[in-house]
């Protein structure tokens, strides 16, 4: 493997890690506030469809992004109503949202475009174009660092940079602001937050909505930047890999970035190489597919440092007894 191959591999790692990272941070906000969300997948899928559909219809990718975020927020609101207002089972609500998205996207796509559950391919202004960092061209001649800067760091869509900037932003919001402290407290001990006179319901809705916003960006990235248009079930389990990354990172923003890059790398390797020869042993491509999930189970089992979720996660808060 030469230097250029490695750069290309890392480049596609960044691209593939971006939707995982956005969804993972989305889940981070929600679960830190005590609302389990296995509906990340569904929200991404819904956003992917609506962003592609609106971008295809208007030719404007920014309108598409807005539509994607809007649809994802709608599903997030549904999750909030079910799991906060009506104190329903958060896991079941997530399952329902995943199926709702899987079905509705194809149903609407077929009704609007009649192309077998996909949107038309996005062209021109309908897609996010690569965004060049300053001096990327002039620096590309510099040995080693040149290609790293111009190939690996530069030339991604704007959403990639937003995703990676969201990591310090998430850290700052959660660990350096009053809102973040309250949000984390509501996931550990909602009764204490309530006693302090802060609305548990309000905080949890805020967290769920932030989750919807980030999932919306993740979905829009999939359909309008990573690929050019929506196809049926295009999230392909990314919402669950993001969930796995979240556990892998033990609900911490910087670690979430590390986990998503790792899982992105696994996806990039699986995409590029079919079977990998490693010292006489052939690693089948299916092993690469399964590895994120296996790693998550190992982490969950607590053999490599125990993953302890927020204490009030999954429990609806009942004010009066």
């Amino acid at each position: 493997m030469d230097f250029l191959t490695i750069i290309q591999l890392l480049d596609s790692t960044v691209r593939l890690a971006t939707p995982l990272l956005l969804a993972c941070l989305a889940g981070l906000f929600s679960e830190r506030a005590g609302i389990f969300d296995i509906g990340l997948e569904g929200k991404m899928l819904m956003a992917a469809f609506f962003s592609a559909a609106v971008a295809a219809a208007t030719g404007n990718v920014w309108l598409g992004l807005l539509a994607g975020i809007g649809s994802s927020l709608l599903l997030a609101g549904l999750h909030g109503v079910a799991s906060i207002t009506f104190r329903g089972n958060q896991l079941i609500s997530g399952v329902a949202i995943n199926f709702l998205a899987a079905g509705m996207t194809v149903l609407i796509a077929q009704d609007w475009f009649q192309q077998g559950g996909r949107t038309p391919s996005l062209i021109g202004g309908g897609r996010f174009t690569p965004f060049d960092l300053p001096f990327a061209d002039s620096l590309s001649g510099v040995p080693v660092l040149g290609p790293v800067y111009s190939e690996l760091l530069s030339g991604h869509s704007i959403l990639v940079y937003i995703a990676f900037l969201a990591v310090p932003a998430t850290w700052w919001v959660l660990f350096r602001t009053r809102f973040g402290l309250r949000l984390r407290a509501v996931g550990e001990n909602p009764a204490a937050v309530d006693t302090a006179g802060v609305s548990v319901v309000g905080l949890r809705y805020a967290a769920v909505m932030i989750c919807g916003l980030l999932c919306g960006i993740a979905g829009a990235y999939l359909a309008t930047a990573l690929q050019a248009g929506f196809v049926k079930d295009m999230t392909a389990g990314r919402g669950f890999i993001a969930l796995a990354a979240l556990i892998f990172a033990k609900w911490r923003p910087w670690h979430a970035m590390g986990a998503c890059l790792l899982f992105g790398l696994l996806q990039a390797i699986a995409l590029r190489f079919q079977n990998i020869e490693l010292g006489g042993i052939t690693i089948p491509v299916q092993a690469m597919d399964a590895l994120p999930y296996v790693l998550t189970v190992v982490i969950l089992a607590g053999f490599v440092g125990k993953a302890i979720p927020p204490r009030a996660g999954g429990e609806p808060y009942v004010k009066e007894r």
Partner: peptide, 11 residues
């Protein structure tokens, strides 16, 4: 199926 899960389960 999603609506049935939603109404009989979560809601």
């Amino acid at each position: 199926q999603a609506l049935v899960i939603l109404f009989t389960g979560a809601l």
